[in-house]
Simulated assay, not measured.
Amino acid sequence: MKPRHKRLALIAGGLAILGIVATLVLNAFQSNLVFFFSPTQVAAGEAPRGKNFRIGGMVKEGSLQREADGVTLRFVVTDTDKDMTVAYKGILPDLFREGKGVVAQGRLGEDGVFAASEVLAKHDENYMPPEAAKAVGDAHQRAAANKAASEAAAKTIKQ
């Protein structure tokens, strides 16, 4: 084999190995990619079915229910616009409380209940996960816009 052919074969082999490595890295990245959705987005059908994602908001007051085994529990996550029931089997973080911010990672079940594999809670008095804070803020803005629109419609009807 001529030196020129050896060089081309070496370059082609290197490119093939580089392509395989890039494919494996991108595949691993894609399988570990987890997106965040608010309960309103999940209710609107924006969340993926059959794939892991995160849901966040506030734990609704009075919604925490423990089952007889002591490890399985259900609670409701809300962004003040929509609510989502979350089922979790495991030990909750020490800082998990009703009325506080939470982010849960898992999958949406066929029954509409979010089956969490991991629950993350706030770490201090004033903290809420950024995604959850944005979801709650967006819900408040939508509620204010809807209220303003209904008030404007009521004024128009009176006139």
Rank of each mutant, 00 (worst) to 15 (best):
K100D: 03
K100S: 01
G101V: 01
G101R: 01
V102M: 03
V102I: 05
V103K: 06
A104D: 04
Q105Y: 00
Q105D: 12
Q105H: 04
G106K: 02
G106C: 02
G109R: 15
G109T: 14
E110H: 07
D111G: 10
G112E: 15
V113I: 15
V113L: 08
F114L: 10
F114N: 11
F114H: 06
F114Y: 15
A115Y: 15
A115L: 15
A116G: 06
S117T: 13
E118Q: 14
E118C: 00
L120N: 10
L120Q: 14
A121Q: 02
A121P: 08
A121D: 00
A121K: 01
H123Q: 11
H123W: 14
H123D: 09
E125W: 05
E125I: 01
N126L: 14
N126A: 12
N126P: 00
Y127S: 06
M128E: 01
M128C: 03
M128L: 09
P130E: 13
P130V: 04
P130G: 09
E131R: 03
E131C: 04
A132V: 01
A133H: 07
A133S: 13
K134P: 08
K134M: 09
A135Y: 02
A135C: 05
V136Y: 10
V136F: 08
V136I: 14
V136W: 06
D138I: 04
A139Y: 04
A139Q: 06
H140K: 13
H140L: 11
H140V: 11
A143D: 07
A144E: 07
A144P: 00
A145C: 03
A145G: 06
A145V: 05
N146G: 10
K147D: 12
K147P: 02
A148H: 04
A149W: 11
A149L: 13
A149F: 10
S150T: 14
S150P: 05
S150M: 12
E151A: 08
E151Y: 08
A153S: 11
A154F: 07
A154E: 15
A154R: 14
K155V: 10
K155Q: 15
T156C: 01
K158H: 12
K158Y: 06
Q159W: 05
Q159P: 07
